[in-house]
């Protein structure tokens, strides 16, 4: 959630220089081990024991990851085709308007949208996913458009000169060359999704937010720390994985 405006914040910029080393997963793993040791040396009362049970944590984490994955996939399915569409000659003039609208929507706090939608349409995981998708579409959309637009026009001209059709130019030139920028947007989207999925607990959508909320309500430090650390670790791990993917799907030579 901290980054729900990341897209707005960083534009089409790729976030470079991170996620390549294995220091990050090592630190994250060490953190988890420390957390485990710390919790296991404590005397847990019955409420702590319930929340900090393996089953409860596993469920929460699974829900969290599922919500994140489903939302991110939906974003990809919606935003990339839409972005491609908006860069085609017939729709090019719409692009700035769509972007402006999307930017304006971005200004709305995710928590507000989440609550609004659940008041209007009911609570639950589905509404959480809708909110996530609404909020996380912009970075991928923006970066798809930016990524395609940044492709050197001389290259496209060369393509046309060689007799490539529009579709071939799109598939063989524009899309591959836009991949790094699109991936950067996707990485931002994933981070946003993990964040919003945490507050989805407010509308009974489950996830790691459940643990944090339990910690706040029950005033148990052990629960608070476990929930906070787990959520942070998952967010950083997914960001790291996305960074890795960003690196590997990049076409050779770029």
């Amino acid at each position: 959630m901290a980054v729900e405006t990341l897209g707005g914040a960083f534009g089409a910029a790729t976030r470079k220089g991170r996620g390549h080393s294995f220091a990050t997963p090592a630190v994250l793993a060490a953190t988890l081990v420390l957390l485990y040791l710390w919790v296991s040396t404590r005397q847990l009362d019955s409420m702590e024991a319930r929340v900090l049970s393996a089953a409860f944590i596993r469920d929460a984490a699974l829900t969290h990851l599922t919500v994140t994955a489903v939302s991110a996939s939906l974003v990809v399915v919606i935003a990339i085709p839409l972005g491609v569409l908006l860069t085609r000659p017939f729709a090019r003039r719409l692009a700035p308007w769509v972007m402006a609208a999307a930017n304006a929507g971005q200004a709305a706090p995710a928590l507000g949208v989440l609550v609004l939608l659940s008041i209007l349409f009911g609570i639950g995981t589905r509404i959480a996913v809708v909110t996530l998708v609404l909020h996380a579409t912009l970075p991928v959309l923006r970066n798809t458009i930016a990524g395609i637009q940044q492709v050197d026009t001389a290259l496209l001209e060369a393509g046309r000169g060689m007799g490539m059709s529009r579709g071939q130019i799109l598939r063989r030139l524009e899309l591959p060359l836009a991949v790094p920028v699109v991936m950067a947007g996707l990485r931002t989207t994933i981070v946003i999704c993990v964040g919003i999925a945490t507050v989805a607990t407010f509308i009974n959508a489950g996830g790691l937010g459940d643990i944090i909320v339990a910690g706040i309500k029950l005033q148990r430090t052990s629960i608070l720390v476990t929930g906070g650390v787990l959520t942070a670790v998952i967010a950083l791990a997914l960001d790291w994985l996305a960074g890795l993917a960003e690196k590997y799907v990049r076409p050779h030579g770029i």
């Binding site: 901290a2 993990v194 945490t198 430090t221 929930g227 906070g228 959520t231 950083l236």
Partner: peptide
């Protein structure tokens, strides 16, 4: 910045 805000707030409460 990658850490979800609810998580960071939770860690700050203690």
């Amino acid at each position: 910045l990658t850490i979800p805000s609810l998580a960071l707030l939770a860690l700050l409460i203690p």
